[in-house]
Amino acid sequence: MQPFFTLTRRELGAYFVSLTGYVIITVSLFLIGLSFYTIVSKLQAESTPLPITELFYITPFFWLVLLLSAPIITMRVFSLEHSTGTFETLMTTPISDWQVVMAKFTASLVFYMVMWLPLLGCLAAIRYVTRDPSSMDPNIVGTTFLGIFLLGCLYMSMGCFASSVTKSQMIAAMLSLAIGLSLFILTFLGEQLPMEKGWAVATLNHMSMLEHMQDFSRGVIDSRAVIYYLSATGFFLFLTYRVVESRRWK
């Protein structure tokens, strides 16, 4: 496990010692702040029975942060190594392909979660101004973060896969954005289908990220959503592993 942790630490370091990582967090934080400012303005005008976490996920900024941050965080993980030629050096070290893939994925995921941490500060600020303890139910905050984590797992694994197939960071980012956006759009496609029983409707409902996030943001944990995200993450990590492994037989 030591090589895995070493590589993860190295990857995380790449985010935190350069300005890039901080710029990503700053932009995300600005969007999160903007959504919270919108929520407070709304609460100033009218009362609402929805939990704050649910109001937050409804705003477009939440999805903007998710959809844009994932390609930006992950675009460099393999592409940069390929383009600078350090990938072959890395592969000659006594570390397995799985460890490389998992270390890069873990580092991206940890950075992604760090990026979301200031959300707690925003919620605490809302709790302070509403003076209502129930506006920050710790269980609901926990499930909201679980939802953010699971979405992050899926999007980071997609990003790692996109980065592994190309040397160009730009193409990697675009590919990751395209896959992520397609999955997101499928959510809306489900709403347009007629009310019938069938595998298409069932599949689209099963993959609906809006529905999943709605559940998490109101304190509901559904095993279907958890399994969906974990299995899809596993699938993309498997694809990434195959791409990384392919250097041996190309």
């Binding site: 901080y22 710029v23 967090i25 700053t26 932009v27 934080l29 600005f30 999160i32 702040g33 903007l34 919270f36 400012y37 407070v40 303005s41 609460l43 100033q44 009218e46 009362s47 609402t48 029975p49 704050i52 200031p118 500060g121 925003c122 600020a125 101004v129 509403t130 209502d132 129930s134 506006s135």
Partner: peptide, 28 residues
């Protein structure tokens, strides 16, 4: 259970500064 806030203009400005400039600015 409904949530509502009633903040003064100055408090709203403070919150606006915190969310849009304070927190992102500190990280940057």
């Amino acid at each position: 259970h409904e949530f509502k806030v009633s903040l003064s203009v100055s408090k709203m400005r403070q919150l606006q500064f915190l969310f849009l400039a304070g927190m992102p600015g500190a990280v940057l």
